[in-house]
Amino acid sequence: MIPNVLTIAGTDPTGGAGIQADLKAFSANGAYGMSVVTAVVAQNTRGVGSIVAMEPEFVAEQIAAVFEDVRVDAVKIGMVANADIADAIRQSLDTYAQCPVVLDPVMVAKSGDHLMQQDDVEAIRERLVPRATLITPNLPEASVLLDRDVEMSSLEEMHASLEELRALGSQWVLLKGGHLGGEESIDILTGHETVELTAPRVDTINDHGTGCTLSAAIAALLPRHGYIDAVRQAKKYLTAALRHADELDVGAGHGPVHHFHALWNNAPLQLQGAQR
């Protein structure tokens, strides 16, 4: 059975992050994608211009429209925008969701732009993290969740933070170490057990939407795999998408990863001389 997976997130008109990236990652990993918009974001590969948040009641109505008609096998939550929307999502999940919930605590864009007010972070920490079955913070996001001023700078510090992150309430934590640098990208998954997941670091500036893509791929894979296997496969998928990212020509800044690298490489597009 093909899983139905829902993303609750903000938009990216250039298609590299947010809901657009989530839907691509769902499809590339064999899931049918559905979406609920929390915010419309004017952004591109160079940065974020402005954000228009949806009314919380409208976010709840979108979620209800999906769950009242469609079997939902997993949920991915990305950009929440503000505390009222976080509350609306939590109430909706409590009413409807009996499936894995993957929370990517999106607070800062790749460009460094803040995507939500600092005062709203507490709502993510207290309302959504305990409701999630898996959270996927990178090192800056983990520091925000733990209310720390100094970002982790070593694998040892990452391991030392796992217990405190788990104490926030999710069943599993995927702490992503991409910001450490080095020849390898090392993430740590902890839940019923703890494992390190390592992949070669890909030398490309086209890494827009990596966090969205990874968490969405995990959500797409969870209905058919255990947590460790789903995360391992999703990381392998993202690494390949990064490796093929330079095949795309999208934007003048941090371009997107190549979500459909496997499909398009097997069936190359004939752009020149194509028949209409």
Rank of each mutant, 00 (worst) to 15 (best):
P13R: 01
H208V: 00
I188S: 08
Q275L: 15
A230G: 01
V75I: 13
G16P: 03
C99R: 02
L139V: 02
E68K: 13
D73E: 09
A252G: 05
N29H: 10
W264F: 12
T7F: 01
D84E: 15
P256Q: 02
E184S: 11
V121D: 03
G47E: 10
K24N: 12
V173P: 09
T213E: 04
A167C: 06
H159P: 00
C212Q: 05
T133I: 09
L221H: 06
P3H: 04
I228P: 00
D94F: 05
E61Q: 13
G177F: 05
A132G: 05
A42Y: 02
R243V: 07
I8V: 11
A64L: 08
Q62H: 11
E61R: 13
R125K: 14
P140E: 12
P268G: 00
A241R: 06
H225E: 12
S92Y: 12
A42K: 07
A160Q: 13
E196K: 07
D22F: 01
H259C: 08
H254R: 02
L189W: 14
D73Q: 08
A97V: 12
W172K: 05
N206F: 03
T210E: 03
Y227S: 02
D87H: 12
I89H: 15
Q275C: 06
L103C: 07
R46E: 11
I2T: 15
D249R: 08
F260M: 15
L174C: 09
K236C: 00
R224A: 11
L103P: 02
P56V: 11
G16E: 04
S215W: 05
T136I: 03
S154K: 06
L146A: 11
E247Y: 10
N4W: 00
A220C: 10
T194S: 15
L222S: 08
T204F: 09
I218T: 07
A219R: 09
A25F: 05
V129H: 03
A21V: 10
F26Y: 02
D249P: 00
L221T: 06
Y96V: 10
E68T: 09
H208T: 02
S50T: 07
E55R: 14
N29S: 04
N82E: 07
P200F: 08
I8F: 04
S92P: 10
A97G: 07
G10Y: 03
V75Q: 13
V59R: 01
F67Q: 01
G30C: 04
I19Q: 00
D120K: 01
V129F: 02
V129W: 10
V150S: 15
G169C: 05
V5H: 04
H192P: 01
S215T: 12
T210F: 08
C99N: 04
N138V: 01
V231L: 07
E61S: 14
N4I: 03
A220H: 04
D12R: 04
Q233H: 11
S35L: 01
E122F: 03
G47D: 01
V144A: 13
A88F: 07
V250Q: 10
L128T: 12
V108W: 00
A217L: 07
M107A: 08
D187S: 04
A199D: 13
L6C: 09
G16M: 11
